[in-house]
């Protein structure tokens, strides 16, 4: 009884919060609600027995995304205030008292409800006990080089997905850099000595922690993505405190770090191809080592990419 109640409450809160987050009159509050939604979703992932994802969601889905949106909001607000005191058309949202608008909103609402109904009808018609691929995955797990099934899927069974995904990450940063110059957060560390000394301790620790998550990922929840997320968190902290510039001084080094995931993954794929005749088909018995190397490179790239996304553009001097 109690678990059902808990699940029910969680689900209700999630849905309600989602609605609030997107339709709150106060955009700032909406963003905060959105971040909270991410945390609740992480709980939902736990209830769905997906701890790997709970970790990733908390760090990336809620934390990093929230930070990205929040900093964008701050930037936009500042710009709006700077621009000749207009009542910031961007910030007012859909609350215009326009009849046609209201009508279309009602129409779209009805449409969405209908869509939801259809979706629910279809989803509930699915077989109650799905076959899934659990059995296959577990049967092949011993050959995969790792013992955490999720890692096995990510870096062996469906490694090709992950290769493309690392590509997406790199592409995202290339796209963002192509778009705009990042703004270094204007942190004056002389006024925040406590933060500085905290970060001096914490950042290296987080780096070690990221390595630990990478290592543990082979057998337990964790892996390159979670580790990368941790690294990204560290980087965001560094950027926030103004320390980031010191770490990102050398452009080519940074770019190499961003691309090393794709490069190592790609080269590994090619080498494996020459070795075994299959793209990303690791030689028998060596899968674990190959995965570790790929993951290590991916970790660096993921961490750097996600962290630099926070900068919102290419690092420039001013």
């Amino acid at each position: 009884m109690i678990p059902q109640l808990l699940d029910g409450t969680l689900v209700l809160v999630v849905v309600a919060l989602a609605w609030r987050a997107l339709n709150d009159r106060d955009l700032f509050r909406g963003v905060i609600e959105f971040i909270a939604l991410g945390l609740l979703l992480a709980m939902a992932w736990l209830r769905l027995r997906a701890p790997d994802l709970a970790l990733a969601e908390a760090a990336v889905g809620s934390g990093l995304t929230g930070a990205l949106i929040l900093s964008a909001l701050v930037r936009m607000r500042r710009r709006e205030q700077a621009a000749a005191g207009q009542p910031a058309g961007v910030a007012t949202g859909p609350w215009a008292k326009d009849r046609a608008k209201n009508f279309s909103r009602v129409l779209l609402g009805a449409l969405s409800v209908a869509m939801l109904g259809t979706l629910a009808w279809a989803a509930l018609s699915l077989p109650a006990k799905a076959r899934g691929l659990t059995a296959e995955a577990l049967a092949r797990l011993p050959d995969s080089g790792v013992t955490n099934p999720v890692t096995a899927v990510l870096l062996n069974f469906r490694a090709y997905d992950t290769l493309l995904e690392i590509g997406v990450l790199l592409l995202a940063i290339v796209g963002v850099w192509a778009l705009r110059r990042g703004e270094w957060p204007a942190a004056d560390l002389r006024e925040r000595p406590l933060l500085l000394s905290l970060l001096r301790w914490v950042l290296p620790l987080l780096a070690v922690g990221a390595g630990y998550l990478l290592w543990i990922g082979a057998s337990a929840p964790g892996g390159a993505f979670q580790g990368g997320a941790l690294l990204a968190g560290a980087l965001v902290l560094a950027l926030l405190s103004g320390l980031g510039r010191r770490l990102l001084r050398r452009g080519r080094l940074v770019r190499t770090g961003l691309t090393i995931g794709v490069l190592v993954f790609g080269v590994a794929g090619a080498v494996a191809l020459g070795w075994t005749g299959g793209l990303l088909q690791y030689p028998t018995g060596q899968a674990g080592a190959w995965i570790l190397v790929i993951e290590a490179a991916a970790l660096v790239s993921i961490g750097l990419t996600l962290g630099l996304l926070y900068l919102g553009g290419r690092p420039g001097e001013k």
């Binding site: 006024e191 925040r192 406590l194 933060l195 905290l198 301790w201 914490v202 620790l205």
Partner: peptide
């Protein structure tokens, strides 16, 4: 222990940042 220590340090720092 590490987690506790980190949380302590973090909360102290965050407290300062917000207060400041």
């Amino acid at each position: 222990a590490l987690i506790w220590g980190l949380v302590l340090a973090a909360s102290s720092t965050v407290c300062f940042l917000i207060g400041q």
